[in-house]
């Protein structure tokens, strides 16, 4: 197709959008509302995922080594644990280092223990997969020379359940939402095009091919989608940065943190803009198709 024809299509799509400005506004509004919802959902889901994996990755087994074991025996035990299946990481911390940590956390008052350290030498163990934590803990418990194996048992299993359901609900919800969005937008565009059925018929009667009729409508859909994505992109950018900066200090000491704005927004903006364009273009292509079957 010649360049001048493309220029005419672009010009036609823009003038048509302007001359049908109320319909255009309605379509842009529909895109805006749905993409805003989609944006919020994506932000929530990405954060739920992040928090969940933060928790998962934090699941650590704490092995208290018997006080009867001296340092070299403790190191032997470390080697044994390392050779167990599904063990990803083993970290040995001597009771002196443990004490230093406690002192650092709770202040000088505890320095009186300097004389006689009541703590155990400790192994921190991570399973290759968070779900294998319980099994690994059991294997370690069976080894000689451990006083206790701690990993928060029931709570952790519960946490995994909660995380899994949240994820599933989130994914199902966003799929439903996206489907509703597509339906809503293609319906609005269909409405604007139904109003122009007469126009399409005339174009065909004066010798326009289907493509010649279709392309300006699809371009128009693209502009509408882009304009509809504009507000959600801006709102999500400002909104997420401010929510992030307000909430992050509150969870500073937790094992999890929120997704950094730069990471989240890059993905979010790309998704919103792309969704706007795709919905606009396909919405109008689908709606025009019906009227192009003029004899």
């Amino acid at each position: 197709m010649a360049i001048k024809t493309w220029n005419r299509h672009v010009r036609d799509s823009l003038t048509s959008m302007w001359r049908n400005r109320w319909m255009s506004l309605a379509a842009i509004g529909a895109v805006t509302v749905t993409l805003l919802l989609v944006g919020v959902f994506i932000a929530v889901i990405l954060n739920v995922n992040k928090i969940a994996s933060d928790f998962e990755n934090d699941v650590e087994i704490k092995v208290l080594i018997s006080t009867t074991m001296n340092e070299s025996k403790a190191l032997e035990l470390t080697q044994k644990v390392k050779k167990l299946p599904n063990v990803a990481e083993v970290r040995y911390v001597s009771k002196d280092d443990e004490l230093k940590k406690v002192v650092a956390d709770f202040g000088e008052d505890l320095s009186l223990f300097d004389q006689e350290n009541p703590l155990h030498n400790v192994l921190y163990v991570k399973a290759s997969e968070p779900q294998k934590t319980a099994a690994v803990a059991g294997q370690i418990d069976a080894l000689k020379g451990t006083d206790d194996v701690l990993y928060g048992k029931g709570q952790i299993e519960q946490l995994f359940d909660v995380v899994d359901t949240t994820r599933t609900i989130g994914i199902v919800f966003s799929i439903v939402l996206v489907l509703i969005a597509v339906f809503l937008i293609s319906n609005t565009i269909k409405l604007t095009i139904a109003a122009r059925q007469h126009e399409i018929e005339i174009m065909k009667l004066v010798g326009a091919t289907n493509n010649y009729v279709r392309i300006p409508f699809m371009l128009e859909g693209m502009w509408l989608g882009l304009l509809g994505a504009l507000l959600p992109v801006v709102a999500m950018s400002i909104g997420y940065v401010s929510v992030y900066h307000n909430l992050s200090p509150l969870v500073q000491n937790e094992v999890f943190s929120f997704v950094a704005p730069a990471n989240l927004l890059a993905l979010l903006i790309a998704v919103l803009v792309l969704m706007g364009i795709i919905i606009g273009v396909f919405g109008s292509a689908m709606s025009v198709r019906k009227y192009l079957t003029v004899k």
């Binding site: 065909k204 009667l205 004066v206 010798g207 326009a208 091919t209 289907n210 010649y212 079957t293 004899k295």
Partner: peptide, 13 residues
């Protein structure tokens, strides 16, 4: 149907 536009271009209606 896809050739109809080319017929119409030869005519003035």
């Amino acid at each position: 149907a896809r050739k109809v536009p080319f017929l119409r271009r030869q005519l003035g209606v």
